[in-house]
Amino acid sequence: MSNRFKIFFKGVTDVSPLMIPVVPFGIIFGVLAIDLGLSPLTTMAMSIIIFGGASQIVFLQLFSAGASSLVILSSVGAVNSRHLLYGAVLSEHMSDFNMTWKIIISYFLVDQAFAVTNPYLKKSNDKDKVFHSFGAGATCWTVWQTTTLIGIFLGSIIPEKLGLSFAVPLTFLALLVDDFRKLINVIVIIASGLIATIGYEVIPFKAYVIVAAVSGLLLAMIITKFKGSNNG
């Protein structure tokens, strides 16, 4: 077994446990897209072209609510802005990768792949360490495409009265579970949620997602600044 394959395989096995929650997420995306009237081809294309669960779900929600392209694009941009945080830690470990690898890894690097690739790159000095990121990313990709496909098939079978669209808020709720224990996060969560709920009908162009997100972040800035100056 070549060294590259060994490292690739390590990426696959490292990320595999994190794929368990991705399975229902992918299926829910496929089912919902079909429910909302998207064709199987468009649904599959979204998973291949966008390849980001949160981005795709936000896209679906706003698209079905009749939001404009600009609002959908800016909301997807806001959802992706969490990736900027990763840049602070990841780019220094990837500085030896060539341009082609950086592009390939960029396409593959969803949150789960990031979660295992970052600690690995931090301690590995292997010249082929990029294959770890590649293995982790390719695993996420395969699982996401397969579960989207399963969802597309199930979408035409699952009865609408099951109310599976409720799985969307539950999935995002599950992503926030670690933040429920932190007071400032809870305040931001409630503020953003209330603004979105009240603003749903009031804010024009279905821009409630972006307005609520920006307000929540501003509130976080104010609270943390106040708290910081209090301590100092």
């Binding site: 949160a54 779900i57 936000v58 929600q61 806001a78 959802v79 802005s81 969490r82 900027l84 945080l85 669209s165 409720f166 969307v168 808020p169 995002f172 709720l173 992503l175 926030l176 933040d179 400032i184 996060n185 931001v188 969560i189 409630i190 953003s192 949620g193 209330l194 603004i195 979105a196 709920t197 749903y200 409630y208 997602v209 609520a212 997100a213 920006v214 307000s215 929540g216 972040l217 509130l219 976080a220 800035m221 943390t224």
Partner: peptide, 17 residues
């Protein structure tokens, strides 16, 4: 501040739903 991005954006999907 960036660490608050998920807490700021996901509720905007969760609450209305």
């Amino acid at each position: 501040v960036l660490s608050f991005v998920p807490s700021a954006i996901f509720p905007a999907i969760i609450f209305p739903a």
